[in-house]
Structures are given as C-alpha cells and as structure tokens.
C-alpha cells in the first residue's frame, strides 16, 4: 500500500476578469494549474516533482497537504482522504504533514526569537507544554545542525545566515515529527556554497526519521541527487514519471530530453549537442490542443495536435517508467 496516493487530481483557478468582460460573457475561464495528475509515493520514499515555472508542481504539493481544495480527484495519505477533512480534523492531521517553503526569510517572523517560533508551531499542533516544547526544539536544533542550540534558540532571524534560517524552517517542519513533508524548492534561495549542506540535512533527516518527501524543484541536478522517483510536469500534466536512473538514463519524452539538454553542466570538457526547443511554456488558460507540448516539439505530427497522449508504459522491462507521448517508442 502506498503512503501517498493521488488520483486524477485537478485544480482549476478562476481567472479574474474586468467588469465589462464579466458582463459580456457569462462563462468563467480557468487556469488549469493541475489537470489530471495520478501518482503514488511509498512510505520512506523521496518523490520529486520537476518542472519549470507554471508547470503546476507547487499547486500539486499544496493540494497534497490540504492547503488547497482540489477541483476534483483524490489525495489519500496513510489511508486518510485529505480533501474530505474539515477544518478541525485538518488541524489535527497537520502535525503529520508539513511543508517547507522556498524563502526562509519570508517564512520566519522577524520579531520573534527563532526558538520561540519553532516552539509555538509545536504547541499549536500538539498538546506539548511550554517546557516540553522548548526541550524538543533544542533537540531538533541539534539534530539539524543548529549549534550551539541554546544560543541559536534566542536569536532573531536577522542574526542568522541564510543557511541557518533554512535550517530553522526545516527544524520547525520536523519538530512535530511528521510522516510526510512537502519541500518546495528548499534550496532555490540559499547561497551556492550552502546548498549542499541543506540537501545533506534533508537527506539525513529522511534517513533518520523515515520521512516521506515530496520534493518540488526546477533543478534537475538536485532532483537526481536527492530523489528516488520523479515526475516531469508541464502545464498541469505529468509528461514522464519513473525511477531517477531510468529517466536520466533514457528519457522517453521529447520535453524531458530538452530539459536535460538545457541544464548547464559544470564541466567544460563536456560537449553536448543541445537541442533546445523553441519558445516558452504557453499560457495555462488556453493550453494547446492534444499534447500540450506539440507546438514546441520537433517530433510533432498531426495526431499530436489532435489527441492528448496518456501516461503509458513503453519499455516493457521497466514497469514504473511511464511516458505521455505518442511517439515514445522512437526513443527506445
């Protein structure tokens, strides 16, 4: 039984229109941020959602922890149907699932000592008393490498470096002992020389606490380093999903191939032929017909503009490697 199960998940956001437009047309238009996504994550796995901005990866992450209500579809965590929980049930459930955001500075109250901020989060979600909370925060600070913990506890965010702040955010997410953590670009705003530290902390916490992660990133190299399985997202859809080794070893979707080719490699001796697709991700209000990638795809034919490809197995030896492309056999 998978720990997290997502079935045909959709989230449409209505588009704000001007008054005149509203009067003229009764039909609401929607941004289809997530448009029919199905996947599952086993307990203790790190599943990566990879995509460019506007692909729907952040919305998917938020839907899984109940921060957003889906338009349709199911999210089941540890047997619990998350969208059906009421406010109170959700609050109690929330200690079991946490989210780590991109910007540590925006995530922390500048007027609060970071230790107190983490203790508050713990007391809000559990019935720990002040003393127990402080003790557990200090333990957690030690755990994530915020040492000396006692001294860091009474500092304000402005007196911490970017890396330390992100560690505080991680400590706050983990102090309630969650089973499931959504990490939304946790290293995107951290200095380059500090990124590996944060990735290491996340990896270590995963191993020591047996956490299940949904790791959201635009950085394919980071996804490859940290995740065991990933999904490549584009305009609210999964284009390809599978084990990291399979996807990086033999990407079967033209978009995945393009993404991999586009990533700059920190090795000047590598000379790769770069097949970079034209244009940019189109508007999610009016996604292209058929395959959403077809206007940019070098392999597109008539069927691609007509029929939306579904995720399917193409390589018979790799059951978990699925791809949504009419022509995927070409790349085997």
């Amino acid at each position: 039984m998978p720990f997290l199960e997502v079935v045909d998940l959709k989230k449409y956001f209505p588009v704000q229109k001007g008054m005149v437009e509203q009067l003229l047309s009764r039909k609401l238009t929607y941004v289809k941020a997530v448009d029919g996504v199905t996947f599952s994550v086993d307990k203790g796995d790190i599943f990566g959602l990879v995509g460019e901005s506007g692909s729907g990866k952040t919305t998917t992450g938020r839907l899984t922890v109940g921060l957003l209500k889906p338009t349709s579809g199911r999210v089941i965590i540890g047997g619990v149907d998350v969208p059906s929980l009421n406010k109170e049930e959700l609050r109690r459930f929330r200690r079991r699932m946490q989210i780590i955001f991109q910007d540590p500075t925006a995530s922390l109250n500048p007027k609060m000592k970071v230790g107190d901020a983490v203790a508050d989060a713990l007391r809000l979600l559990t019935d720990a008393d002040a003393e127990t909370a402080k003790k557990r925060v200090l333990e957690m600070f030690e755990y994530v490498g915020l040492t000396p913990a006692g001294e860091i506890y009474s500092r304000y965010p402005r007196n911490l470096s970017g890396g330390q702040k992100q560690r505080v955010v991680i400590a706050r997410a983990l102090v309630t002992r969650p089973e499931y953590v959504v990490a939304d670009e946790p290293v995107a705003m951290v200095d380059v020389s500090v990124r590996a530290q944060i990735l290491d902390v996340m990896k270590e916490m995963h191993e020591r606490l047996g956490l299940t992660y949904l790791f959201i990133t635009h950085d394919l190299a980071v996804a490859k380093y940290l995740c065991s399985r990933i999904a490549i997202m584009y305009l609210g859809r999964f284009f390809e999903t599978g084990n990291v080794e399979d996807i990086f070893g033999l990407p079967l979707h033209p978009y995945t191939q393009a993404l991999l080719a586009a990533v700059p490699v920190p090795d000047p001796t590598v000379r790769r032929e770069k097949k970079i697709p034209r244009g940019e991700i189109p508007n999610a209000i009016n996604p292209p017909s058929g395959c959403r990638f077809h206007p940019r795809c070098p392999y597109a034919t008539e069927i691609c503009s007509r029929e939306e490809p579904q995720l399917r197995q193409v390589d018979t030896s790799k059951a978990s490697h699925l791809v949504a492309c009419h022509w995927a056999e070409k790349f085997l």
Binding site: S161, S193, A196, Q197, K224, V265, P266, D267, V270
Partner: peptide
C-alpha cells in the same frame, strides 16, 4: 570546495561535499 558541492546532472551516485558555515 565549491566545485565539490555542486550537483552535476551527468554523474550517477554523486557524493556532494558540503562546505561548513556560511559566507
């Protein structure tokens, strides 16, 4: 240290070495 701390998409089972402290 910087070069050893950067993930490279072409490498398998890469070991990153993080740099302690901050700038």
């Amino acid at each position: 240290a910087l070069l050893q701390s950067i993930p490279n998409i072409l490498l398998d089972d890469q070991e990153l070495r993080s740099i302690p402290g901050s700038p």
